[in-house]
Design a protein around this nucleic acid. Structure first.
Lengths: 347, 347
DNA sequence: CTGTTAGCGCCTTCAC
DNA sequence: GTGAAGGCGCTAACAG
């Protein structure tokens, strides 16, 4: 309601003085400053965002582009949203969430309209056209995920290959000989969705390194698909004694179905999930996990963007998180056993 | 990049003509309009949000206030966020998500700064101080939920009392005689959190109406609490043959624990959840539910707010959704049986 | 139907 | 250390 002109009037100074008192970009005498500040909070003054944005040519707003494609939103994205929003808020930035299905148009809309100063992208593919677009538009951005070609921009990602290796190494250490990897959907894999592609690569190289037999199964991130998948595993790969998954929904279904089939976890079957701390807590019994530090990643992604916006020198920062192994099963998992547990369950 | 002045120049018209060509608030000759539009998309023109906001005194932005209190964010809120964001986008509004812990300050910040034109509030308590504040500030708003005193503002809510009645009626119809109601946390209940309070009321009146015995149990919305609760039910209320819950996390845990204990759902125990369609799908076997139309509610809440902003006459609109019963169990649930199933499971 | 012009609230260069 | 003034891009009277 109150404007700088109002404040200036009641404090007997000029508007520019008010402005500088606020920004500190010019020395102000202690006395003047006090009068100005007094006038401000007496009037409940708050600088108007639009005025400031217009004059400074910065909106102090960051946007998160999340194309709400069919594949539904999961708890994992939720954690991203809220953590990113929090981080933005702490730095004095507003946080815009866009679910527009067509990213390209949305990138243009948000940047050209000046509603955001920069963008955070999720659901990155190996060759992502949005990156070129953002560059062409000169819009600062960071990726949660990364492309094959990634010079000159900031991103933060989980090292999925390493995560899978960590998981497989753990299982190999327990004596397992044959393990299954439950990926996300085949469609995403084909589309070059990074996590799907890179986990698979990590899985395969780990198999080779530890001399294990392995099976890769793609699975839609839905409970139904997960149930079907579990039955499929039972039927087709009876010798499998351990499962690792990056697919939270399938994992939930698998654990549930295992109970139904009388397969004890971790007694009969070892299960390792690549999951955030928060998600891991939703499982019972507690699941051994390779930590997916979602909240930290979202925070960092947001902060990297804001650092760019504030001209924080330093150029692109690229951070790959390593998922730490968290063994949560109290009882030891089954070492590879003679009898194929899954097949036994199928009878 | 391009401004209206640029467009005006290349189209040989004045800026106001450009503006009116865009807004349609004044008749423009077909020919002029064509020239203007041509110039616009040749230049890739997009009106700058800050300029527009400053001149029109409206930011075309709505905000969702979601104080990220301790009790963690759930899939349910996620559905709210994305649905609200979607609805806002469809109406040409930007959507801001604020997780600032202190709502009051945030209300002031977002409104006084002019970053939003209106707000959507979640997690409403029976006496919610934010409402008075919003009123005092003259900020348009809608609630997802409602207060005891609620004249003169718009809200959308689920009729939790009715939802519980629907659930209990269903169970009574199946022949159950003793049912448990799993509420959210005792803390929220005491704080006057609407859903907790009103569901309980609905539960109790339904018990009376149908002459059933019932037990009310508050439970933190976490898996661990849910597990504990299940064991508690087993130990304390062995005659209970049916459970209804508005607590998604507890419900998940309860279903899981039931499997562990060898209690078949719905064979041995009937379970009814108050859940969104999407959440219901996460359960297996499918759960009988009273539908919690989260997405529709978020959309409507957002649209009610936007309608206010656009001066859509009509005054406050208050909508209570009725949760429709969706019986998803294929096999018929257990009518009240002589043998206390939960106790049997406990052996 | 179209042009001219004054702001909207703030930032920032230029002058003192 | 402080003022005055121009302008950011757009809207909306006010004049034709």
């Amino acid at each position: 309601m109150a404007t700088m002109a109002d404040i200036a009037r009641t404090a007997n100074v000029s508007v520019s003085t008010v402005s500088y008192a606020l920004s500190g970009k010019r020395p102000i005498s202690a006395d003047t400053r006090r009068r100005v500040l007094a006038a401000m909070d007496e009037a409940g003054f708050r600088p108007h965002a639009a005025g400031r944005a217009l004059a400074s040519r910065r909106s102090r707003t960051v946007g998160l582009l999340f194309p709400a494609v069919g594949k539904g939103v999961t708890e994992l994205q939720l954690e991203f949203f809220t953590s990113a929003a929090e981080a933005a808020g702490e730095h004095g930035y507003a946080f815009i969430l866009s679910t527009a299905p067509n990213d390209d148009a949305e990138v243009l809309r948000l940047s050209r309209d000046g509603v955001v100063d920069g963008l955070i992208l999720m659901e990155i593919r190996r060759q992502d056209p949005r990156v070129a677009l953002l560059r062409a538009e000169g819009v600062p951005f960071t990726l949660i995920g990364h492309c094959d070609e990634n010079v000159g921009y900031s991103f933060v990602d989980l090292d999925f290959a390493r995560a899978l290796e960590t998981a497989v190494a753990h299982l190999a250490g327990l004596g397992h000989r044959e393990v299954a990897f439950v990926n996300t959907s085949a469609a995403l894999l084909e589309a070059g969705y990074g996590p799907a592609v890179r986990s698979l690569a990590g899985f395969e190289s780990a198999l080779a390194r530890f001399g294990l037999r392995g099976h890769h199964v793609a699975c839609e991130p839905t409970r139904d698909a997960g149930l079907e998948l579990t039955d499929h595993l039972v039927a087709e790969f009876p010798a499998v004694t351990a499962v690792v998954s990056i697919n939270r929904e399938a994992l939930g279904a698998l654990v549930g179905r295992a109970y139904e089939l009388g397969v004890a976890i971790p007694g009969d079957l070892s299960v390792v999930g690549v999951l955030s701390e928060r998600l891991a807590r939703l499982f019972s019994p507690p699941l051994t996990t390779v930590d997916f530090p979602v909240a930290a990643m979202a925070r960092l992604g947001t902060e990297l963007l804001i650092r760019q916006l504030e001209g924080g020198g330093a150029g692109p920062t690229q951070t790959m998180f390593d998922g730490a192994l968290a063994v949560r099963s109290s009882s030891g998992p089954a070492p590879a056993r003679a009898s194929p547990v899954l097949a036994a369950a199928a009878r």
